[in-house]
Design a protein around this nucleic acid. Structure first.
Lengths: 160, 160
DNA sequence: TGCCTTCACTTGCCTAGGCAAGTGAAAGGT
DNA sequence: ACCTTTCACTTGCCTAGGCAAGTGAAGGCA
């Protein structure tokens, strides 16, 4: 199958299949989600996630560094997303009164409205692409495995 | 008039957890792989995949359109990757003698050498982040679920 | 044969995002 | 009190990649 890998077989065939499927999912799934959201709502999958996370927070407000962490974002990336959001009046930024180094971001009513109106199509897409193809047992197993991998990857990015 | 939430119910708690884990994996895993490969080999995870796929092909040669499909790439994206690879003499492009519309890409010896020398670290990283956290049974289940999702996403991107 | 359509691929234009350097606020040491 | 260090965040510079338009080859049909 894979010539280089045959010469130095670090991954067996079963691992190869899993790896290929995972590669397709990490490359093609965001692309599919981005396309749908861009077309319907003019935002990316990542931006949707930021809006969703903020909307879940108490008072719809979070420190940027916390938001970056839960969104698996670097700080510069989130900073620029916030620039765009602020320009559209979807979020407001203000210094944390308790510690001037932090910045608090709050979802505005306009921002929440944007999220609510783009949610149905997006959630439907997620269900169609991720949940519908699986049985209930497969979903459970998938959740277990992905949670473990996610934790490992998070440690990697924070530590490295 | 039906309410939005009735038409498109939100995800339940179990689905939320799965979805969050998948989001983290889809966003953070490529980032972690890119960082390692960029640092060690000066290429991206996607570029590594292209080299690997080409190396597996018969005569290390493929039509660009076929290569794009198996790499889950758009044609412009692959076209630009090939520009970079050709500039470094990792691949050679030539028109398909059987049909002048196609372009054949062949991995050069230099290109294969680049792949072989960057493979060990990369594979080790993949094992560490994806395989090591899982039991054998979990790997099997993960492979099954991801394969189903991957097929669905592929259909989505080709059809839509 | 000539023309129109349909491919496969490339190019141009624009935005997103990574990294490294810069700014400004707090904490620690003396 | 001062200076240094360590934060949280932003800015600048550069490259990757998406989309839409452009190029050139092959097939279809008169």
């Amino acid at each position: 199958m894979m010539k280089v890998m045959d010469a130095q077989p670090w991954l067996d065939d079963e691992q190869q299949d899993l790896w290929q499927a995972l590669l397709t999912v990490v490359i093609a799934l965001p692309a599919a989600l981005d396309r749908q959201l861009q077309r319907e709502a003019g935002i990316s999958n990542f931006e949707y996630g930021v809006l969703a996370r903020l909307s879940m927070a108490d008072e719809a407000t979070m420190r940027l560094s916390d938001l970056a962490r839960v969104c698996d974002s670097t700080q510069p990336r989130l900073s620029k997303v916030m620039d765009r959001f602020e320009a559209r009046d979807w979020v407001a930024r203000r210094p944390d009164p308790g510690d001037g180094r932090y910045t608090l971001a709050t979802l505005t009513d306009t921002g929440r409205q944007k999220l609510v109106e783009s949610a149905p199509e997006h959630v439907a897409q997620v269900k169609r692409l991720v949940f519908d193809p699986l049985t209930a047992a497969q979903r459970r197993h998938l959740g277990t495995a992905l949670t473990r991998i996610a934790a490992t990857v998070r440690r990697e990015l924070e530590g490295g």
